[in-house]
Structures are given as C-alpha cells and as structure tokens.
C-alpha cells in the first residue's frame, strides 16, 4: 500500500510536470519519468509483458523520437498565441474542465475500496498468456492493428511527398 501511494504521487507529479513545464524538452523528460513509473505499476500487478513493452516502446522508442522532433523543430522558440475571438472561452473551458474532473474524482472517492468485478485468472498479463491470446482467439485484433500500422506507413508517404515539379508554391507548407 505504501509503495502504491509513493508511486501514485510520483506518477501524478510527473504528469503535472508534463503540462506545467514551460520548455518542451522538460515536458518530454517528465513524460519519460511518468512512463517509467507506470511500468513499475504494471510490475506490481504482475503484468511483466506490459511493463517491459511500456518501457521499450514508450520510454525507449517514442520518447526518443519525440525528443528528436522537439530539438529539430521548436527548441526554445516561443510561439505567438493567436488572438481569441471569444473573450470568455478560457474561463468557461476551465470551469467546465474542473467540473468534469470533480465529477470523475467524486466517482473515484465513492467507489474507492470496492474490488473490481471479476478476478483475473492466474498468469493473466504474463508473456505466455498474452501470446496465447493474441495468436489464438484474439487474432482479429492483431490483424486490425497490422492494418493500422499499414495506414501509418501510407500516411508518411502521402504527407511527405515533395511538391510535383512546376506546381506553384503555396502558403503554409
């Protein structure tokens, strides 16, 4: 329980730092911390595969990519905010967001302590079990994710194609 509380505080702190940090690189580093803490959470829940995947995929591949993009594009530059046409929208949005968050937090407080319905079978979330599910009854999910990756690859091709020769250069790209 004490371990859980420490980890929860750490996770929340890192998540807040992602949003609050002024510098994008700091945000990215805080996100790495958050992701690692989540991986420890998964380990506590005996989901070794998820923990390993979390660290390799998120903290490893995705965050490095993210840092590359940040360094290449906007490091240190301040963007000018566009003028807003609706003067009160920030206030209203903040109010509604706090209201929604409070409702969700209230729900959490009300149901705290009640166990989740249905107990997971032994070995659930482990490597062997995961593989049996993904290559067995859950194979359609895997196939669909494969199609999604195909879409992402297509997206890279479509969005990065150079302008056709002789086309007029347009604003914005």
């Amino acid at each position: 329980m004490i371990g859980f509380i420490i980890l929860a505080v750490l996770a929340l702190g890192f998540a807040l730092a992602v949003v609050v940090a002024k510098h994008p690189v700091h945000s990215a580093l805080a996100l790495v911390g958050h992701v690692v803490v989540l991986a420890v959470f998964y380990l506590l829940l005996k989901a070794e595969f998820l923990a390993a995947a979390q660290v390799i995929v998120y903290a490893g591949a995705i965050m490095i990519l993210f840092l590359f993009v940040v360094t290449l594009l906007t490091a240190g530059k301040e963007d000018q905010d566009a003028r807003e046409s609706l003067p009160a929208q920030r206030g209203i949005a903040a109010f509604l967001a706090i209201l929604g968050g409070a409702l969700l937090a209230g729900t959490a407080v009300r149901v705290a302590g009640t166990p989740a319905a249905g107990r997971a079978p032994t070995g659930y979330g482990g490597l062997l079990d995961m593989g049996r599910l993904l290559w067995g009854p859950d194979f359609p999910y895997l196939a669909l994710v494969a199609l999604m990756l195909l879409t992402a690859a297509l997206g890279v091709i479509v969005l990065n194609r150079p302008e056709p020769a002789g086309a007029p250069v347009k604003e914005g790209r």
Binding site: T151, L154, G155, L159, G172
Partner: peptide, 26 residues
Amino acid sequence: LLFLGLELLSLPLYILAASRRDARSG
C-alpha cells in the same frame, strides 16, 4: 473491436484530410 474499428476508420481520414497541399487542408 469497436475501438479498433473506430481507429481504423479515423487514421486514414486524418491523413486524407491533410492530403491537399495548402494551409487550410493542413
């Protein structure tokens, strides 16, 4: 499956929406 279908529907549309080469499409 509902979520996977929704993402498979949305991902190509994000790309297609931005596929014209001007600021509006981007």
